Simulated scan of single mutants.
Amino acid sequence: MNFFEKITGSDMTKKMKSFEARASNLPPEYQAAWEEIKRNLWLHADFTGRNLMPILNSALELLEVTSADGQSVEEVLGNDIKGFCAALVGDEGAKNYRDKWREQLNKNVLKKLGGL
């Protein structure tokens, strides 16, 4: 990855387009699960989202393999896709970007108020 790709995020755009092309080959119920997985995983992204690329790739590979085996989405992911995504990123209590920003904002406000 060169400097221009890192600054503009074009490398991530290419990866996401390739993920979407692969996901379009999945059965409809798997495509719906993929959309829900993406929605839930982006909550745990850092500012750029680069930390999620390997996780998204692994989740998509899981969907591809299990759909080829003829398993249903419920057999693979269960009924709790949000819980599945939390397990992928670490833990149910994993901090997302909102938590990090809230914590930083609270620190800055406390600092401006003189440490009250």
Rank of each mutant, 00 (worst) to 15 (best):
M1F: 14
N2P: 03
F4S: 11
F4H: 14
K6G: 09
K6R: 15
I7F: 13
T8R: 08
K14G: 02
M16V: 11
S18H: 11
S18D: 12
E20D: 14
A21K: 08
A21E: 05
R22D: 10
A23P: 03
S24K: 14
S24Y: 08
N25G: 07
E29C: 07
Q31M: 07
A32H: 05
A32C: 01
A33L: 03
A33Y: 06
A33S: 03
E35L: 13
E36G: 01
K38A: 04
R39T: 08
L41S: 01
W42D: 01
W42E: 04
A45D: 06
D46E: 10
D46P: 04
T48E: 06
I55M: 09
L56A: 01
N57H: 15
A59W: 09
E61D: 15
L63V: 00
L63R: 01
A68L: 07
D69W: 13
D69Y: 14
D69P: 02
Q71D: 12
V76L: 03
L77P: 00
G78N: 04
N79P: 08
I81C: 06
I81V: 11
C85Q: 09
A86E: 14
A86P: 00
G90A: 12
A94P: 01
K95L: 10
D99C: 01
N106C: 02
N106E: 08
K107G: 04
K107A: 13
K107C: 06
L110W: 06
L110P: 00
K111C: 08
L116N: 12
